[in-house]
Design a protein around this nucleic acid. Sequence first.
DNA 1: GACAGAATAGACCGACCGGTCTATTCTAAG
DNA 2: CTTAGAATAGACCGGTCGGTCTATTCTGTC
Lengths: 200, 200
Amino acid sequence: MSPKATATKQDTKAALLQAGMDLMMEKGYTNTGINDVLNTLGIPKGSFYHHFDSKENYAVEIIRYFDAAAVEMLTRTLKNSNQTPLNRIRTFCEEKKAKLASQSCSRGCLVGNLSQEMSDQSEVLRLELSRVMTNWQNIVAECIKEGQKIKEIKGDRTAHQLAELFYSGWSGAVLRAKTLKSIEPIDTFIDLMLNDVLKA
Amino acid sequence: MSPKATATKQDTKAALLQAGMDLMMEKGYTNTGINDVLNTLGIPKGSFYHHFDSKENYAVEIIRYFDAAAVEMLTRTLKNSNQTPLNRIRTFCEEKKAKLASQSCSRGCLVGNLSQEMSDQSEVLRLELSRVMTNWQNIVAECIKEGQKIKEIKGDRTAHQLAELFYSGWSGAVLRAKTLKSIEPIDTFIDLMLNDVLKA
DNA sequence: GACAGAATAGACCGACCGGTCTATTCTAAG
DNA sequence: CTTAGAATAGACCGGTCGGTCTATTCTGTC
């Protein structure tokens, strides 16, 4: 059996997840059709409904697929003991900023986009997005807590609260960047949040 | 001519704007069909396309309709000289929070929702949303500037920057509230932003 | 009352939506 | 080689989408 052929066959599901993630990131849930995904990959509809029950379920798997990569990136940056906690957060922000800038401030974050669009439309998606959001916040909070311990980050607020403000501010800054097609909201956020709000 | 009958006829356009605003706030642009709007009002399609060129144009007018009410609320609260600038901002936040809580943390803000969904899909809508967003930020910035003058709000950052962080943080907090179906992100935002970030 | 234009009314259009169905091909175990 | 089930393949379905079209009614002017 040719390894290439085998790989091609078995990667169908992964390819569907990747392509769906890209399309939904750019166009949202409602505006992304099953056929859009299928046509970009040259895969027939039968394969899709073999691997996924419904569009909604497909989206849930896409969110998990996206989450896996996001958590990897979060832990890589925010648990990197070669940097101080505050500088880890700075690295995280700069990496995300570079990504956003490289795509002309479009797309943003899949979880943010789907949350805005689908929270009131699908309880299934809302719960999944909730879970992911809370998890991310906890990872940030842990890093902040470390920074508080060494008095690098201000200690008169709980790490949970600071992480929440950080996350809210970041999401909002990305939204503004997308709409204004400018990286400036991100710059302002990074500057104030890191040099002012979080700093001890 | 009966004034009631006349009013009914001439208010068709306003009714379409109002109903479209409500529906798009809850379901987004793509997921709101022309027929959805028409059916909830009992208005035939001919009337719709008499008053509006296209769905996209309709959305632009809805954004303006929404903006008018939003600017009224912003100026009423943020230019109220009976309160100090920081307290005006607090009043603004509390009013918006009450509204959000009263609708179980659903819907959120039309401009935020459409920005997330449509910025990458329609340049026409993106520009309109950009304009509205920038205008709101300027109104907030003016209030902050006043607060800086009387040393109620911290002066080591420009009012423009602080307004931007405020707006980003607020939008993100609303997004989180929608998804987590909890008012807590809003509470945290108000607490930290007003008692910590903005305070002189 | 005649008339023009605004506004209402709703049937209708092709395109596309998510999802179903049957048929075929591939793959691995016996 | 046989065979069961996974996977691929794509025609097809009812419903809905944004938008068009023709017809009728309402409204203000002469």
